[in-house]
């Protein structure tokens, strides 16, 4: 049995009429097919006949049923309007295209996708390279840190992995031992330090085992790995090195702002330079 059977019943796609628009809709179609979700297409901007016809054409082309799916056109400030729509429509997952890396100024000021990811109250999927012929998520890397949110995040990643028939799913336990130096320089022997470290990780390992026991992983190869280093940074590095196509992270505990970029919050390491598609999991009231 899975803790999460269908994580995203209602998915919103932020549509901008950019060159990647077609690819984004193709990805949306695949998400619908794999997860059986209802889609809501959101475009913020003035509704023109040309754009309306183009969007209808794309929806028809990708076989997205216009009766079950919804199109919302709104005018206003892009980020705030999308956030309001997500809340009003009880969206479970917001999907948007995002550049792998933005220039320094834009990163600090925040492009649309990154601004959304910092403020949105539902889960968010940022697609770095949406493809007109979606390849799906074959190699998934998921955060397995010692945090109350990890249980739901891992279950969500497993559900997606099963839906997409992923080949591998790596659960990464990031161990920040920087504070160990704080303790050990006082007066500890090497063996004592090792014992403390073991104690540190033992309880986390047990918790993770429990989480995995509660989830049916289907045919996915699930590997757990512990990496020492700064949380957020090491998992992004791992995802890049392993050429993962989806990185799944817990949502931050509170809304992010500029200070979290100056003194980076864990998730900001991933947002600064997206190693692959990024899914930030938020357990909303609608998903339960």
């Amino acid at each position: 049995m899975n803790l999460v059977e269908n994580p995203f019943k209602k998915i919103a796609i932020a549509v901008a009429f950019s060159p990647r628009c077609e690819a984004l809709l193709a990805e949306a179609k695949q998400l619908q097919v794999k997860l059986g979700s209802q889609l809501v297409f959101i475009h913020i901007g003035k509704k023109t006949i040309h754009q309306e016809q183009y969007l209808k054409h794309l929806i028809h082309r990708f076989g997205l049923d216009a009766n079950t799916n919804k199109i919302i056109w709104e005018e206003g400030e892009t980020v705030e309007t999308i956030l309001t729509i997500c809340q009003n429509e009880s969206i479970d997952l917001l999907v948007a295209g995002a550049l792998e890396k933005e220039n320094l100024l834009k990163y600090f000021l925040g492009g649309v996708a990154r601004k959304l990811s910092r403020k949105v109250k539902c889960s968010m999927l940022m697609l770095t390279e949406p493809n007109i012929h979606p390849t799906g998520f074959k190699h998934i890397v998921v955060e397995g840190s010692d945090h109350p949110k990890s249980e739901y995040t891992i279950a969500t990643a497993i559900a997606i992995g099963k839906a997409y028939q992923a080949a591998s799913l790596n659960i990464i336990q990031e161990t920040d031992l920087s504070k160990m130096a704080l303790i050990r320089h006082e007066e500890l022997k090497e063996a004592e330090v090792e014992a403390i470290k073991e104690e540190f990780v033992k309880e986390e390992d047990l918790k993770l085992e429990e989480i995995l026991k509660c989830n049916d992983c289907g045919g996915i190869t699930v590997c757990t790995e512990r990496i020492e280093g700064k949380p957020g940074y090491v998992i992004s590095k791992f995802a890049r090195e392993k050429q993962a196509d989806l990185l799944v992270l817990n949502s931050p505990d509170k809304q992010m702002n500029l200070i979290d970029r100056v003194f980076p919050h864990d998730i900001e390491f991933a947002l600064a330079d997206l190693p692959c598609n990024l899914l930030i999991v938020q357990e909303t009231q609608y998903t339960l």
């Binding site: 031992l177 920087s178 160990m180 130096a181 050990r184 320089h185 020492e228 280093g229 700064k230 940074y233 090491v234 003194f263 390491f269």
Partner: peptide
């Protein structure tokens, strides 16, 4: 000390 590239081992050497 805030750098992501300073590992526990490196930090520990300085501390020791």
């Amino acid at each position: 000390g805030d750098s992501v590239h300073v590992t526990e081992k490196t930090r520990d050497i300085v501390h020791q």
